[in-house]
């Protein structure tokens, strides 16, 4: 069709522009495709099946039955043992996050203040736990914490205790092990925030009469909240879903959600119940993170948390 009037011509141009735009969008999509594919097929789809399976009945011969049911969830939510495990899992993850924040902040603070060369070495040292296999690191803690381990032996020798303390296979040992693995994530993300603070802002605070401590709480800490948040999300989600560390350092006494899931799926072959437990874990973790982010955003409006 030949454009007859100027108006039509413009209309045509406009349409062409729109076409170009959608073509551009296609380009973006093409670039995203590989990642998107992996994300959909290996994450979203399995998650969806997990969700579905959680509402199926258990069939002793094939694992997943054909009938729909809510029983898996009601069973979990009405049993104090299972609820206890859920609470313990959340508690351990929260404690790990809290301890990680407390010990990471001073470390991150010192590293950012150090000069460039020392900074590189310190960062490497902080990252070193990530370089060692999780299993080996955990057995290291077993050697330290067991009844005739290094810690108990030393305490006995100094005469500070009469009989060995139960350190291993407790929530305490699990938290210690997890903090050890996960605190580098916290240090790195707090460092990111600290490095972005303009030094003259700190000076301005002192100049206006704030002591160093006051400056820390009024200026430095609020400005590092985004880093603390990002680190917390990482540490909390890795902590709440961790399997190896609680298995080795907690043993059968300290069962956590991921262990329950494993038990149901791999040992009892009760896939529907395992799915329900797994999904509850995801649900609780997400809710906790959302609440946490809401708390932080309402406390400080000026800094963007997410």
């Amino acid at each position: 069709m030949q454009p007859e009037t100027a108006y039509q011509e413009q209309e045509l141009l406009f349409k062409q522009k729109k076409k170009n735009l959608s073509k551009k969008r296609m380009d973006y999509l093409l670039l995203l495709l590989p990642t998107l594919g992996i994300f959909i097929f290996f994450f979203l789809l399995p998650l969806f099946f997990l969700f579905i399976t959680g509402f199926k009945t258990f069939d002793a011969s094939s694992g997943v039955g054909n009938d729909w049911t809510l029983e898996n969830y009601t069973k979990f939510l009405s049993d104090t043992f299972y609820l206890g495990v859920l609470w313990r899992t959340v508690k351990i993850a929260l404690l790990t996050t809290l301890v990680a924040i407390v010990i990471s902040f001073p470390v991150a603070y010192q590293i950012t203040k150090a000069n460039r060369r020392i900074k590189n070495y310190l960062t490497l040292i902080v990252l070193s736990p990530l370089l060692i296999s999780m299993v080996i690191r955990c057995y290291g803690w077993v050697i330290l914490l067991s009844n005739n381990g290094v810690v108990n032996n030393a305490l006995l020798k100094f005469g500070w205790i009469d009989k060995p303390l139960t350190l291993l296979y407790t929530e305490f040992s699990v938290v210690i092990g997890m903090v050890h693995v996960l605190f580098p994530y916290m240090v790195l993300s707090i460092m990111g925030s600290l490095e972005r603070i303009d030094p003259s802002v700190i000076r301005a605070s002192q100049n206006l009469g704030a002591s160093p401590i006051r400056t820390f709480f009024s200026i430095v800490l609020p400005l590092t909240l985004p880093g603390i948040f990002a680190g917390s999300v990482m540490v909390f989600s890795l902590g709440i879903s961790s399997f190896v560390t609680p298995a080795i350092l907690g043993g059968p006494q300290v069962k956590v959600m991921s262990f329950l899931t494993y038990e149901q799926v791999a040992v009892m072959l009760n896939w529907p119940y395992g799915s329900a437990i797994g999904f509850l874990l995801i649900f609780i973790a997400t809710i906790t993170i959302i609440i946490y982010s809401k708390l932080l955003t309402t406390s400080k409006k000026g800094v963007a948390i997410q």
Binding site: D198, R203, A204, N207, L208
Partner: peptide
């Protein structure tokens, strides 16, 4: 020291 300072990059508290 009771001195007021104005910085080149303003140094306002962003939060």
């Amino acid at each position: 020291r009771e001195m007021g300072m104005v910085f080149q990059n303003y140094a306002l508290f962003p939060h």
